[in-house]
Simulated assay, not measured.
Amino acid sequence: MAVASGSVAFQSGYIKSARGVKLFTCSWLPANQEVKALVFLCHGYGVECSIFMRGTGTRLAQAGYAVFGIDYEGHGKSEGAVCLVERFSDVVDDCSSYFRSIRGNYNALGSISHDRTPVEMPDYKNKARFLYGESMGGAVALLIHRKEPMDWNGAVLVAPMCKISEKLKPHPVIVSILTRLSPLIKSWKIVPSKNIIDHAFKDPIKRDEIRANPYVYQDKPRVQTALQMMVASTDLEQRLDEVTFPFLVVHGKEDTVTDPACSVELHKRARSTDKTLNLYPEMWHGLTVGESDENIERVFADIVAWLNLRSPAGALTAKTLQQSDLKMVIDDHKLTASNGVCNNNHSFN
């Protein structure tokens, strides 16, 4: 399905994963300007791209970016048991495969269908490309980077799930019991947890809008899903020093879903030479959808400014932008960049 609205063209369709699962995909493309770079969305736990992340896709497309998203298996409009993550690696592999097909040549996709009508798309293989991960999607983005360390120009990580906070870790006995029973009860919705929507999204009106989205999962986590998220987070925590690409982390200081201290640790331990951390006082977990309009615009202004500084005009080679090239780009833009955008330890106090 293709829909044009003002300066943004929205398209959606389906692909089949390597396991034969039908996965929903969508994109927001600038309608009246040249594409600056590509942005690939990795959504969070229990949500999806076309409705929940519509604001993200639209804003970035209006800023000149071609934005692509995919609903994970069991999420949103994709096939699969609702919110059951059998293997976290499957989520990573599905995203990686789909994103790679677009980066190389969108028209080469043999299994994509847009209402059964082929859609002509530009060749994007010479465009800069960025990952964009929210919450659990932050873990997905970081694991894609680990899998393809030289293939990305950077990432925007919004309240990323990159480590389990000590305050939130389940008791080892609980973990041991669930691990042993998981093969028998993997799909059971019994994992104790607080109401994510109540704790993630600050604005009550936006909170109600999120609840009204029929594709947002609102039940207790399934046993296997919770275990897979814990394993992925623990793995990332142990290997944060393997993160080497440029990244921006934005995190609300009052987030009780993913601990902002974990983002601080990511920023500290990552070996990236270009890394920026923005902490926002009084903001919660849902920085891009659950805050006041003013706060949401503030966060997106920072995100777009960061991307603009790392998306030089014209085509790039397929290799990742080198640090020397990035430094030259940053130096060229210092006079016009907003204050603090390039600060490697930017915190709003």
Rank of each mutant, 00 (worst) to 15 (best):
N153F: 07
I164K: 04
I144L: 06
W152S: 03
P149D: 14
A128H: 09
A108R: 14
F130Q: 06
A108T: 14
N126S: 11
I144S: 02
L142M: 10
T117D: 05
M136G: 05
D123Y: 03
H171D: 13
V140R: 00
D123M: 04
N153E: 11
G133H: 03
E166N: 08
D123A: 07
P160D: 06
G137N: 02
R103Q: 11
D123F: 05
K163F: 03
R146L: 07
V119C: 01
I112H: 07
K169F: 14
R146P: 03
A139V: 02
F130T: 09
G104D: 12
N126I: 03
A108G: 07
L109H: 13
R129K: 15
G133M: 04
N107Y: 05
N105D: 14
S135L: 00
A139D: 02
T117S: 12
S113R: 10
S111Y: 01
I102W: 06
A139Y: 04
L143R: 11
D115P: 04
P118W: 03
L168H: 14
L168E: 10
A155R: 11
F130I: 03
G133Q: 01
D123Q: 05
N107E: 06
K125A: 04
V140F: 04
R129S: 15
P149A: 13
V140K: 00
L109R: 13
I102C: 02
G138C: 01
I112V: 15
H114P: 03
Y106V: 02
L142Y: 01
M136I: 00
A128I: 05
A139H: 00
E166M: 08
I102M: 05
S165Q: 03
I164G: 04
P122R: 12
P118K: 09
Y106F: 14
W152N: 05
V156T: 09
L142V: 12
S113C: 06
A128S: 12
R146N: 08
R116Y: 08
L157D: 06
R146G: 09
G138A: 03
R146C: 05
S113H: 10
N105E: 10
